[in-house]
Simulated assay, not measured.
Amino acid sequence: MSARLGLLLLLAWLVASPAAAGPNADLVFWQSIRAPGTVAEYRAYLDAFPNGTFAALARIRIQALTPAEPSNAAPVPVAPIASLPATAAPAAPREAAAQAILTVLQPQVRAIDRIPVDLDARPLSGGSNFRLVTVPAGTPDALDAETIDALGLPVGPKRLRLTLGPADHAGSNEVRLYEIPRYAAAFTIAARAKVEVAPAAAGSVVVASLVREARALGAVGFEAKYRDRSLRVDGQFLRLVSGTASADLADLLRGTWHDPTRYVILYLGHLGTPSASGSGPAEVACVLPAEDRRVLERIAALRPGSEVVVDGSGTTWGALRGDEAVLLDPCRLAS
């Protein structure tokens, strides 16, 4: 009788009466299976000892010895990542999921131009204190709160299209959206975009910078600094006002005309910022005599937004025909 046949007879006897083999029947059965064993032998062990010491190992070996059955089912196509529903992807951190979109609509502007931007800050609805700030490229990201509040234009977590005031620096600049995120106490940059600013006319001060300084100094302080001081001012043509000299205008003018009976007031600034009474100047007023035909011809050719450079002396700022403006007197168009 062969050894394999004898083993099978022993296994059959143990299966028929495992209790007759004594308390060590489990171990005797397992040791009788010579490695690597067969599927039939391991199944016989499980029939005799379904909860035996080696039951788990027997099942593992049966699985290893049983060839995988070929499947006739068609393969299930895997959808590309782009077509999976949003819930199938793991939740992204706030920094990746909630980002504002900031676009400079005119990436190259003149020094006198406002900067048009498109902003979508709706994903940041959990934050607060949103400010749009224009700074020279390379400015450190971490600005103090006072600087951001002073330079920044307040906005909300909305979709907006607006214009920012002209940049104070020529060359590469950056428009930044600062916010204080939820549960945070400090400003952080939520979006940024680049803008190139062409230089102003040589030796000139841009209207926007001059009127900001006038507001900061006040009418008396501005006159103390600029009266009788020569200025070259670069700005956009806004509008013309003409008329005859009145008592109010005479009080502002210093009698520099030979016959100041007729005048033209040339307003310079930047489009989109009307002057508001009591808020300080937003424009520069250049008062010109209306008798010079060459001056009138040059003025007549101007269109809103045209670049105009004037030379004059700072007098003061105040209400001129109802408009808050810095007054240059005397003043003339730069050649």
Rank of each mutant, 00 (worst) to 15 (best):
G6S: 10
G6Y: 04
L8I: 08
A16R: 12
P18C: 15
A20V: 00
A20G: 05
G22A: 05
P23V: 00
N24H: 15
D26L: 07
L27T: 15
W30Q: 05
Q31T: 15
A48N: 05
N51W: 13
L57A: 13
R61E: 09
A64H: 10
P77R: 12
A79Q: 15
I81C: 11
A82Y: 10
S83Y: 13
A97G: 06
A98T: 06
Q108F: 01
V109P: 02
V109D: 03
A111Y: 08
D120P: 02
G127R: 02
V135N: 01
P136G: 01
T139W: 01
L143C: 01
L151N: 00
R159E: 14
L162N: 01
L162T: 15
L164C: 06
P166A: 02
D168L: 04
H169G: 00
R176S: 04
Y178A: 02
A186P: 05
A191M: 12
K194S: 07
V205A: 10
V206A: 08
R212N: 10
A219G: 08
Q236S: 07
F237Y: 14
L249Y: 03
D251M: 02
Y263M: 06
G272V: 08
G280Q: 13
V287I: 13
P289H: 09
E291F: 14
A300W: 07
L302V: 00
G305P: 06
G305R: 07
E307H: 11
V310Y: 05
D311H: 07
G322W: 06
E324I: 11
A325Y: 13
L328R: 05
